[in-house]
C-alpha cells in the first residue's frame, strides 16, 4: 500500500494557540480559516487574520508541519471577491493546500495559481468516485475529504477507482446529513453552512426556564427540553428531541461524537491518506489532548498493525471530550444507518 506509512494526522486550529499545541503534540497538518464567512466555522472570536495566519504558517513550517486553509463555503452571487482574495492570500502566505467546495473557486485557483494544491472539502458532497474524478479532471484536485455517510466498504471501493487521495473524519462532531446538502439551519435561522459558514448559530439560540424544564430554542423553534437531572447540550437542531407519531426521542441523531479509533488498522491498510480531527471551534486544551491521543495511536498502529490495541486511557480521554460523552462509529459501521 503506497500510503500506508504516510497517513497524515490533520488537526483543527481555530486560533493561533490551538495551532501551536496541535503542532507541538504531533499534528502532521493543521487546518484553519480566515476570520469571515469564507469558511464553515465562521464563529465569533475564532479564526485568523493575515498577521496571525502568517505567524501560524511560520510556526508550523518551522516544526515540519503543513498548513491547510479551509475556504469551504459557497461564494454567494454577489461579493465573491472576498473568496478570491482569500485564495490570493493563501498563495502569498505559503499555505500548503486550500480546501474548497465551490467549483467556481476551484476554477479560479487552478487558473491563477497552478502550483497551489487543492483539496475538495467535505462541503463539496462528493460521495462517489465519479464525482471525485469530476473535480480531479476539471481542476486537478489532489485530495478529497469524504462526507460522513459512507460505510468503510464503500470507501474502499471508491478508493480503487480514483487517483485522488482520500481524507476521512476520524474524531469529533458528527454531521448526520451529507455535508453541503443540508439547509436545515437556514430553514430555521436564515443561515447555513453553505451560505454563511454556520450551523444552528449561537445568536439564534434562546434558553428558557419553564415549569416543564429548561428549554433550548432556535429562532423560536423548540429543539429540546431538559429535566433537572439531565445535562443540557448545545441546540444543534438535528440533535434535539422531537415528537414523531406520539413518540418523543432523538428522531435524527443523539448528541454524540464520531470516534473511529478502533478502525485505525483498517484505515491504514486501505491507504487512507489522512485522518481529520473535527473541532476548530474547540479549545486549545481539546486540540492538544485529541492530537496527542491520535498521534500515539497512529504510531502504535504503524509499528504493529496486526496487534493494535486501543489503550483504555485513550478512550477515557477522548470520551471526556465527546459531545454528550458519547461516541459512535457513525456510517462507517453499517448498523448505524
Amino acid at each position: 500500500m503506497p500510503h500506508e506509512n504516510k497517513m497524515e494526522l490533520v488537526c483543527p486550529a481555530g486560533s493561533l494557540p490551538a495551532l501551536k499545541v496541535a503542532v507541538d503534540n504531533g499534528a502532521d497538518c493543521v487546518y484553519m480559516g480566515f476570520r469571515d464567512n469564507t469558511n464553515a466555522r465562521n464563529f465569533a472570536g475564532l479564526n485568523f487574520d493575515i498577521a496571525t495566519a502568517r505567524e501560524g504558517v511560520r510556526y508550523a513550517h518551522s516544526h515540519g508541519a503543513k498548513v491547510l486553509l479551509a475556504l469551504n463555503t459557497y461564494p454567494q452571487s454577489s461579493g465573491s471577491e472576498k473568496w478570491l482574495t482569500a485564495i490570493d492570500n493563501a498563495h502569498h502566505l505559503g499555505i500548503d493546500a486550500v480546501i474548497l467546495a465551490d467549483p467556481g473557486l476551484m476554477q479560479y485557483a487552478c487558473d491563477t495559481y497552478p502550483d497551489l494544491r487543492l483539496h475538495l472539502s467535505v462541503q463539496g458532497s462528493a460521495t462517489n468516485y465519479e464525482a471525485i474524478n469530476f473535480y480531479h479532471q476539471q481542476f486537478g484536485i489532489q485530495r478529497a475529504v469524504l462526507p460522513r455517510v459512507l460505510a468503510l466498504k464503500q470507501v474502499e471501493q471508491l478508493m480503487q477507482n480514483t487517483p485522488v487521495e482520500i481524507e476521512l473524519f476520524g474524531f469529533g462532531g458528527l454531521c448526520v446529513m451529507v455535508e453541503g446538502r443540508c439547509s436545515l439551519s437556514s430553514y430555521v435561522t436564515g443561515e447555513s453552512p453553505n451560505t454563511c459558514g454556520v450551523c444552528s448559530p449561537a445568536k439564534s439560540v434562546q434558553w428558557k426556564q419553564t415549569a416543564a424544564g429548561l428549554e433550548s430554542h432556535l429562532n423560536g423553534v423548540l429543539i429540546d427540553r431538559y429535566a433537572d437531572s439531565e445535562n443540557a447540550g448545545y441546540p444543534t437542531l438535528c440533535k434535539g428531541r422531537f415528537n414523531v407519531a406520539g413518540a418523543t426521542y432523538y428522531a435524527i441523531e443523539e448528541p454524540t461524537s464520531l470516534n473511529t479509533l478502533e478502525l485505525l488498522p483498517d484505515l491504514m491498510r486501505m491507504g487512507i491518506a489522512a485522518i481529520k480531527i473535527e473541532g476548530r471551534q474547540r479549545s486549545p486544551a481539546y486540540v492538544a489532548k485529541v492530537t496527542r491521543v491520535w498521534r500515539e495511536a497512529i504510531g502504535a498502529c504503524r509499528r504493529n498493525p496486526d496487534k493494535f490495541n486501543i489503550k483504555p486511557a485513550w478512550m477515557t480521554d477522548l470520551g471526556k471530550l465527546s459531545e454528550g460523552q458519547q461516541s459512535t462509529l457513525g456510517a462507517y459501521n453499517r448498523p448505524w444507518k
Partner: peptide, 12 residues
Amino acid sequence: LAFSARCFTARH
C-alpha cells in the same frame, strides 16, 4: 432540506 446515509423512517 437534507440528505443522510441514515434512514429516519426506519429509525422511527
